[in-house]
């Protein structure tokens, strides 16, 4: 038990410590495959492998992984209903009368679409949960020659998102104080909509200030610069890419070899 804990600890560190670009490439390849391979079993594999990796290696609680699946499944469910109800050749009513709907091609196509949405979601979740956005931007600047101005703009935008909540709260305080109404713990939909424009204005002003701060402290468009704590490519990144692609290949082969069912 203790051993397992230690291993998981190492694994957690491992996934997080991997080079974000390696992960990005792997995830894109898997995504491309799940879009191209139109097979329910393959999609199942593309759901299970990232989920298991998250649970075992990253020690994400299984409940969290399940909860992550909920919006993706809702999303996928839309495809399921569209393809079952509106497939041209499927003539839904007739089939309903005649044969079991589960065997209809429309339904299995729908299931595959549903699973595909889930698979794309889980692959992305795998990436998002194991990657620090700052590290990704740094890696992009070092290895993908992303211009620093754009890199830092991305960086600033990502840092802004968590501040929006605090800023919205400040606005709510000021309004509640002036209107003399009690502040509700959570804003209602009407209040949320009324906060959109002030928040956008805040974001634009903050962008202007950040631009001044960055220029005053020497962010030049084209001068050489150091990028500290930039992720490097190590052997384990290569290992990760190889393992992930091998797994993809195996799944693909399994589907091709046994096309019967």
């Amino acid at each position: 038990m203790r051993r397992g804990g230690a291993m998981a600890e190492a694994g957690r560190g491992m996934l997080k410590a991997l080079n974000p670009l390696g992960k990005l490439v792997v995830c894109f390849v898997w995504l491309a495959a799940s879009v191209l391979v139109f097979d329910a079993r393959f999609q199942l594999a593309a759901i299970l492998i990232p989920s298991l990796a998250l649970i075992v290696l990253n020690r994400t609680p299984p409940l969290v992984v399940l909860a992550l699946m909920v919006p993706f499944s809702l999303f996928g469910f839309g495809f399921l209903t569209t393809s079952v109800l509106f497939r041209q050749e499927s003539d839904f009513a007739l089939r309903m009368a005649g044969e079991s709907p589960l065997a209809s091609p429309a339904f299995s196509a729908g299931v595959t679409l549903f699973l595909r949405a889930l698979a794309c979601g889980m692959i992305s979740a795998f990436f998002a949960l194991t990657t620090d956005p700052g590290a990704l931007v740094r890696a992009l600047m070092v290895h993908a020659r992303l211009p620093p101005r754009i890199g830092y703009s991305l960086f600033a935008a990502m840092q802004l998102v968590p501040d929006l909540a605090a800023e919205a709260q400040q606005m709510r305080y000021a309004r509640a104080m002036k209107s003399g109404r009690r502040l509700r713990r959570l804003p209602g939909p009407g209040e949320l909509v009324s906060l959109v424009i002030p928040l956008l204005a805040f974001a634009i002003r903050r962008a202007g200030r950040t631009a001044i701060a960055m220029e005053a402290r020497g962010l030049a468009p084209d001068a050489p610069r150091t990028i500290t704590q930039a992720p490097v490519f190590r052997r384990r990144d290569a290992a990760f890419v190889l393992v992930a692609l091998a797994a993809l290949l195996l799944c693909g082969i399994a589907v091709v070899v046994d096309p019967a069912s």
Binding site: R209, A216, G218
Partner: peptide
């Protein structure tokens, strides 16, 4: 600047302090 928010770029403290030095390409 008069406003601390105008001086800082909203990053983590460590990054914030390293930023001007990174711009000067120090090792």
């Amino acid at each position: 600047f008069q406003d601390a928010d105008q001086t800082l770029c909203g990053m983590r403290v460590e990054d914030e302090l390293a930023f001007p030095l990174e711009n000067r390409a120090l090792p």
